[in-house]
Write a protein that binds this DNA or RNA. Sequence first.
DNA 1: AATGGAAATGAAATCCATTTTCACTTAGGC
DNA 2: GCCTAAGTGAAAATGGATTTCATTTCCATT
Lengths: 133, 133
Amino acid sequence: MMPSTPLPKNYQLIRDVVDECGLGCHLTPSEIYAKVRERQPGIGLTTIYRGLERLRELGFVSEIEVPGADAAAYEPAGPHHAHFRCSSCGRIEDVAFVIPANTLDALAREHGVEIKDQRVTFEGRCSRCTASG
Amino acid sequence: MMPSTPLPKNYQLIRDVVDECGLGCHLTPSEIYAKVRERQPGIGLTTIYRGLERLRELGFVSEIEVPGADAAAYEPAGPHHAHFRCSSCGRIEDVAFVIPANTLDALAREHGVEIKDQRVTFEGRCSRCTASG
DNA sequence: AATGGAAATGAAATCCATTTTCACTTAGGC
DNA sequence: GCCTAAGTGAAAATGGATTTCATTTCCATT
Ligand SMILES: [Mn+2]
Ligand SMILES: [Mn+2]
Ligand SMILES: [Zn+2]
Ligand SMILES: [Zn+2]
């Protein structure tokens, strides 16, 4: 089939900013706003929120909600993984960890629910804070 | 040693409400507010927030922050566990699952961080919603 | 080109959980 | 009783996210 409707220009800019940040990089809507604004000074924060929602629906970006963080963060879509949040400095890092599907299946059966997603977040001290503090 | 300072009466009421809710029961500050208010009509929401923070520091209650939920939830302190959130109705259930310590150790070593806590949340459809919807 | 409807846009208003401020009351060691 | 620290609640402030609404842009169709 034909390539579906191309992304509106502004949404593409948002996608670019998230993509250029790269894997393992997590940006808040405000941070994205600031970066997009460098290329499109007139854009409004509202459009950032709307664009991020759309891009998430389309599977281009992922939203992560980390307990303790004051705002949601976005990253380019990629392989599923866990996150680590340093409770000292707030830094968020990727952690290569996923609960295997057969474990999820067992849990789902056991609890009589249908599990569609997992969110794993670790909390502690990052190497930088351990070194300095 | 002497029993440390007894809990202020209002904080004790908050603790009672959370405890009476039982394991596997998760209450938001507003819900707790409503319940405490039945016994102490004059109490303010501010005191609920302050009490919950204190009770958490003292280890009597646990706060859980579930992605997708609009407010934090509290439960009586107890064994560590994971949570399941139904994306259809919002219901939060306990899930008997913890990432084993040796796995955490390996991850921590691998990523050069110090892991102090884990937060595991599953998302999907609860049995009730699967049956009805 | 003209047209019309759908989508996108941004400013402003609104929402809402949580925190902060501040003046006041309470509790308890002395 | 006095004094200080802790507790309290109303009200205001905060701040991320959403909603509203009037306007503009986009594009497929004439
Ligand atoms: Mn990530
Ligand atoms: Mn629980
Ligand atoms: Zn750190
Ligand atoms: Zn449900």
